[in-house]
């Protein structure tokens, strides 16, 4: 369980302060897949960074299984927008990273993950030989090897072309259905948010806060063209249209 209580993040700026996040309240149960969507500047990436333990200067509380998050750790796997692989290591070494491939258990698990992220045959390839989507799958496998309690994905498919992105979304759902890791997925793509999330958290900027949480009660795999999908997509879209009309929204609309 990831619990966020009254989380506020203020960036000091030359011209006064910038409130990046104001009074975020959210609880995400184990095994959930929650997507976060909002325009740039709504603080969704900042929220993820704080959950990852990479940013420790905030007010309020954020706990994972009851323990406050203090610094980064393998419990909280992070997938950045770029794959961030080590260019001098092969695919399998990148997945193992600081775990030893000489350890039989690590080896076996790395092999399983390579199959899970559909990279069989590329164990010995270097990152420079991979496409963007393949590299991002290596990054996902690297995080999964550590069996994280929660996987934090910060616009992981944002730099990929539309076809690759659709494929990656399916791969991610496969992974999630295989081992039910809790996932927080930040995106600025409306379809992606609705296609993946059990819940879609809609965020607004200035100051960054949660506007509404929409539940998506559709079975996987979802049909993007189906009427129920389009209906929920419409609900989310209308929230954004309201944002445009009301530049100063009411603060602290949590769940």
């Amino acid at each position: 369980m990831l619990a966020i209580q009254g989380l506020t993040k203020i960036f000091p700026a030359p011209a006064g302060e910038v409130v990046a996040l104001r009074d975020i309240r959210l609880e995400i149960g184990p095994g959930r897949l929650v997507t976060f969507i909002g325009p740039s500047g709504c603080g969704k990436s900042t929220l993820l960074k704080i959950a990852a333990g990479l940013d420790a200067s905030y007010e309020g509380s954020i706990t994972l299984d009851g323990r406050p998050i203090e610094g980064p750790s393998v419990e909280k796997g992070v997938i950045f927008q770029e794959p961030r692989l080590f260019p001098w290591w092969t695919v399998e070494k990148n997945i193992a990273a600081n775990a030893s491939l000489r350890d039989a258990a690590v080896r076996r698990r790395v092999g399983e993950l390579i199959e899970l992220v559909r990279l069989k045959g590329f164990e010995k390839a270097y990152p420079s030989e991979l496409s963007g989507g393949m590299a991002q799958r290596v990054a996902i496998a690297r995080a999964l090897l550590r069996r994280p309690k929660v996987l934090l994905l910060d616009e992981p498919f944002g730099a990929l072309d539309a076809f690759t992105r659709a494929h990656m979304q399916e791969v991610l759902l496969d992974i999630w259905q295989a081992d039910r890791t809790t996932m927080l997925f930040v995106t600025h793509d409306l379809d992606e948010a609705v296609f993946l999330g059990q819940q879609v958290v809609i965020m607004n900027p200035r100051p960054g806060h949660i506007r509404r949480v929409v539940s998506v009660d559709l079975p996987y795999p979802r049909q993007r063209t189906g009427a129920p999908f389009q209906e929920i997509r419409g609900v989310v879209l209308r929230e954004f249209e309201k944002v445009e009309e009301a530049p100063v929204p009411d603060p602290g609309a949590g769940i």
Binding site: A52, L54, G71, P72, S73, V74, K76, G77, V78, F80, E82, R84, F86, A97, N98, R142, R146
Partner: peptide, 16 residues
């Protein structure tokens, strides 16, 4: 710096 952030998340030791 971006790769350094990765080593923090993966909890590399100083030697690693």
């Amino acid at each position: 710096a971006k790769l350094y952030e990765v080593t923090r998340v993966l909890q590399f030791t100083r030697l690693q």
